[in-house]
Design a binder for these strands. Sequence first.
DNA 1: TGTATTCTGTACTTACAAGTACATAATGAA
DNA 2: TTCATTATGTACTTGTAAGTACAGAATACA
Lengths: 191, 191
Amino acid sequence: MARPRSFDPDDVLEIARQVFWRKGFQATSLDEITAASGIAKPSLYAAFGDKNALFLKVLDRYHDGILGWAERTLAQPGPARETIRQWLTGFIPYCSGEKGQHGCLSINSATDGSLDQAEVRRSIERYNRRLEELLRARLRADRAEFRKGFDPDITAHTIMVVHAGLLALAHQRPDSKQVKAVIDQVMGLLA
Amino acid sequence: MARPRSFDPDDVLEIARQVFWRKGFQATSLDEITAASGIAKPSLYAAFGDKNALFLKVLDRYHDGILGWAERTLAQPGPARETIRQWLTGFIPYCSGEKGQHGCLSINSATDGSLDQAEVRRSIERYNRRLEELLRARLRADRAEFRKGFDPDITAHTIMVVHAGLLALAHQRPDSKQVKAVIDQVMGLLA
DNA sequence: TGTATTCTGTACTTACAAGTACATAATGAA
DNA sequence: TTCATTATGTACTTGTAAGTACAGAATACA
């Protein structure tokens, strides 16, 4: 029994994500988000809280999207190595060329010293933990495919490191062939 | 025949590096640097130019320090794998625990969307290129140690990716044992 | 139709940071 | 000692961004 919202909050989060992704948290002003979204500041504040809270919502949504995709991809049948290779290969467009120039919002945020809000750190930690759990679970489940002495836990973490490294270096716009070559080489560890 | 400078510019760059490293470029105000260094703003501007120029000098100095150390380390005699392992192992204190919580100034800057100054990008690219060249040169020189088909160029890049990944994930303060395990596992690719 | 309620847009306040004007201090050289 | 020259410190201007007050608009329901 009141005036309804004139926008879909999820649409605005999507727009805010693009701006935050491109410019980073500090350098993004709410005025830029109002300009990009057409939503005035009081509406943003009413719907999402202050800038920190808005960013946290954007980041959580981003994490959820990637985790959902990882869950689906890593649940696929077949050899674990090929499944994981496919998952990593899916990141190539975001790790190379023009499209990769802004890297990963989560990595960018993790390396941003201005973001020392505890909740942002927690969101990133939870995201990394869950991603690594997915990899670890898959490697453990298919352990029989690998050599004696294969360590699924360390290997899962190594893959996380490579994943983070590719997305950190994405800002240099490397050639997609080079990224693929690195993935293929690292997959040699899954044997 | 004029009043001499009351400070050593290199000392100030060192202090500025610490502040920029901890808080990032955007979130660091010159007032914080004046507070940390005791040097007033007009002196900073006279000596280093504006905030962008100061940051660029800090970053170049940081890059030079790491490159110098890499040159010395990677020139050491012995098997290439052990030399490179030693070099990577030297990063462990900066990739783990309390000391690693701020990661690497170069990676942090590369992933900072607010730093789209062309000169900063160039400095980072040059740094990465030189580091990779050092690794590649060493792997090529000692190619005889490795199996037939070993690709020194791709391997050098893979090591760069792992290196970047470790420093990107350093913000999570991982255990140093875990970092060491990843390095050891990746060194398995040098065979 | 009227009213309570919530949303929206304009315009504001406040805070803070970048950069600088200017008066003054400290030196080397004459 | 005096002057030319460059550094320093105080205090300022300017710009910009976060957050909000308030008046008016849009709905559901009585």
